[in-house]
Structure formats: C-alpha cells, structure tokens
Amino acid sequence: MTHALAAKGPTASRPKPAEFIAFAVLAALLAVAPFALYPFFLATALCFALFASAFNLLVGYAGLLSFGHALFFGGAAYIAAHVAKVWGWPPELTLLAATAFVGLLGLVAGALSIRRQGIYFSMITLALAQMGYFVALQVPFTHGEDGIQGVPRGKLFGLIPLGDDRVMYYFVLVVFLCGLLAIYRIVHSPFGSVLKAIRENEPRAISLGYSVDSYKLAAFGLSAALAGLAGGTKALVTQSATLTDMHWSMSGEVILMVLLGGMGTMTGPVIGAIFVVAIPEVLNRIGGPDFAQWMTVIQGAIFVICVLAFRRGLIGEIAARLRRTL
C-alpha cells in the first residue's frame, strides 16, 4: 500500500524549520528542567504530554474526536503495573507489552467506532471506555477500588536502576522524545497527508480512491498504542495503576490539554498538558486544598473559554500570529 501511495499519491509534507526549532527548544528546556522543578512532578507531566500528543494525532490530524482515550491510557497502566509487579518484567519489556496490548485494543475499539461518523463516533468511544472502566472495576487482577500499588520500577536493560526520581525522569524524557518523534514522522509522512485530507474533506478523499476507513483505523490504532506507551510509563513513574486513569474524566482531561494547547499543532498538546497538570499544584500552593476543590469547575471554565474565544489554542494562536506551523 505504501509503495502504491508513494508512486501516485501524496508526498510527505516537508518538515518546517519553525517546527524543528520549537522541538529543539522544548527538548533543551526539558533536559535542564529537573534542576529547577521536582523530577517526579516533571516525569508525570511528561507522561501526560505524550498522552496528549498521541490524542492529538487522532483529533488534530485525522479530525476524529475520541471521548474514550482514558481506556488506552488507564488500560496500559494496568497492564504495565501487572506485568512489572506480578511477572517481574524489566521496564523496557513492560512498556513494550503495555503498548502492544493497548495497540491491539485500539484496533478493536477503532474498528467499532469508525463504523459511525462525527458525534456518533465520539459517543461510541465514550461508551466503549465506560465499558472498559466497569470491566476494570470487576476483573480480579486490577484489585477494584484499590488499584495496583507498589509497582517496582526495576532496572532498565538489567543495568540502570530507575528507583531514583531523577534517573527515572531522564528515562521518561527519552521515551517522551521518541514518542514525539514518532508522531512527527507519522504526521509528515504520506500517510499523514492522507489523514489531513480526510480531516478536511472525507467524501473527497473517498472519491480520490483512498480507503478512508483503513486510514482512520490505522490512525486510531497508532494513537491508542502511543497513549498506551504514555499510560505504561505513568504506571512506572507513580508505581501504581488506579481506576482514576480509566475514568471518563481522564478522557475529558486529555481533550482539555489538546484543546488548550492547540489541536493539530506539534508542541501545543505538550504545553497544554503541562498547564493542566500544573494548575492543581499551583492552586494547592495558593489557596490550600479548599481551593483545589474547584479544579473541576476551573477545567470546565477553560473548556468553555477555549471553545468560545480561542479555538486554536495557545500554540495555535501564536502560530497564527507568526504565520508558522509550530
């Protein structure tokens, strides 16, 4: 299929220098960040940033708004926690297992949900994720309301122990950058161009002879697998997997990250994720736990403001001002 595409179909969009610079600046900032901020907090934030970027691959480039990505994030966290704790697998194999499992799960869920379009697609993904939530509540290995606690981080390649938060952070940073590069490659490949064509005008893409459904399914599977990579990594960082990661509010949170940062931008979801993760911390500092209670309300308000006032998101607005893709 790829051969045929390369011959007759779209060409890869050329990587833009501005995008590349933004990426390099981001990587450099993240490399020195643990000297200024808690590495544990940063590592968690990076997991969410990867999750948001994976989600953006689907909503920003294929135009498919999934309302059930917590299924993949939380599902992978459970798989990773179980594999690392009960089977004693090393971190690299743990992440591989979680990513592969959730990728397959994504193909199944994707095959079902792309049978309908538009808002129905969103409602189906939401319902499927809710089903997964109830399954996770009842199957024995997830330990119900308690979740899986005390997950060992293990030794990377049997050599580097990840117990220290700072070491763990740099491991997460590498995973994150690899994930982001993968997304960058996907978006700028011929495959990515077809996805954007489907987003802009699906009937036209069909009439041009593209098998739109297989493209959507592939995008869904890739996005799910990368979300799984993020979820598995998060399980190792926090050393736990709980129902919170599978709840519909998590699906909402990842949408918020991407919406706030900017749908269809490379760096937007990362910035959005850092904002959304940082807000409760900052609120806690300013006003104590009483203030942090208002988190849900604040998130809701950000949704409303973003949709009404700046639909392009933070990075999207800046990019529009600079007339560059970021």
């Binding site: 708004l65 808002i119 209670q293 998130q299 809701g300 949704f303 949709v307």
Partner: peptide, 30 residues
Amino acid sequence: MLKRLAGLDHIYGLLLTFGLALIIQGVFQN
C-alpha cells in the same frame, strides 16, 4: 453561548457542553 457555535464543527458543541457539565457538577459537588 451555544448560539455562537452555529456553523462550526459538531465537536465544538460537544466540548462546550462538556465544559458546562463539568462546571455545573463541580459547583454542586463542592
């Protein structure tokens, strides 16, 4: 609010009302 979304993609209506649901539920929960 909803009136301003006329002519936009369906997903914005979904996102806006999702945000409203979060606000309403959050206030009652607090």
